[in-house]
Amino acid sequence: MKVIVCSSYEMVSVKAAQIVRSHVREKPDSVFGLATGGTPLRMYDLLAEDHRLNGTSYQKAVSFNLDEYVGLNRSHPNSYHYYMQSHFFSKVDLLPANRFVPDGLASDLQEECEQYEKQIKDEGGIDLQILGLGENGHIGFNEPGTSFKKGTHVTTLTNDTRKANARFFKNQREVPHYAITMGLNTIIQAKKIVLLAAGRKKAKAVKRMITGPVTESFPASILQTHSDVTILIDKEASFENIKEEK
């Protein structure tokens, strides 16, 4: 596990964008696992700017999003379909046929999960997975207690997660109770993983993720078992004895 403490959230985003850009340039048909939420926003801005100015192409690439709320249609401003379209898909040349986001309105959610898992396997798995980190240790929407053996599945969101995400809604009551998420077993099979975390609220989770026991009670701890993980954090999310990189 490689841990890089950046001087600011901006530099976390710059380094994350550099990794994605380098990956797609070296392997144009890369399969990306993409995250949503507040932390990756600036990374997507930088990738869109690079595409516009430098022509970095995603035409041969494929993307799979980590998760989607159950019950929100694609045009809902808080759906992850909408998020991805607004912040990334509409700004680069990634083909619509190569963009995969779980369908939270599927009539059979279990079948949707199984089909999503199959689509990932049919593409040869994830080459580069981008992750954020929840304060309770969740990655994707894999909440504490989720089995490390889980594939894509429907999960019940904890009150802590719904409270943290309420800032994107009018109030917490509007935050869905369920979501479809890639499972921990799916995530850990990615060839390379990059996790972004920023802000003082994430410091305890970062420390536990890196130095704590590997346990299903703290899902992100599974990353300790992966051979190619890069953790990008800013100063506020850091703790003692991690070398700072300017």
Rank of each mutant, 00 (worst) to 15 (best):
I126H: 07
P176S: 05
E236L: 09
E245M: 12
G38Y: 06
Y44C: 03
A198M: 07
K235M: 12
Y178A: 04
N98D: 06
Y69H: 02
I222W: 00
S238K: 01
P77W: 08
G71Q: 08
K163R: 14
S147P: 11
G137W: 04
R74M: 10
I193K: 01
A197D: 05
T156R: 11
R162D: 08
N142S: 01
L95R: 12
I139S: 00
M43C: 10
L223I: 02
E123Y: 13
E143A: 10
G134H: 04
K243G: 03
L47A: 04
N65P: 05
A16F: 04
A48G: 09
G151K: 14
G38D: 08
H138N: 03
K192W: 01
E117P: 08
G199I: 12
I19R: 14
A48D: 06
G140M: 02
S217Y: 09
I210K: 09
M11L: 13
Q115A: 15
L41S: 09
N171W: 06
E245P: 01
D45P: 07
L41Q: 13
Y116R: 11
H226N: 12
K207C: 10
T155Q: 06
G104Y: 05
P102I: 09
K15G: 00
A106T: 13
V229D: 00
V92D: 05
A179F: 06
R21I: 07
K207I: 03
R25W: 04
A198P: 10
P96C: 01
N54D: 05
Q59G: 07
G134P: 07
I130Q: 14
P144D: 04
A237E: 01
A61T: 08
K27W: 07
I19V: 15
K191G: 11
K15P: 00
M43W: 03
I222Y: 01
Y80F: 14
G38S: 15
F218K: 07
M11F: 11
H51G: 07
D45R: 04
A198Y: 05
E240S: 15
T56I: 10
T230E: 03
S75N: 12
I19Q: 14
L34I: 03
S13G: 07
E26C: 08
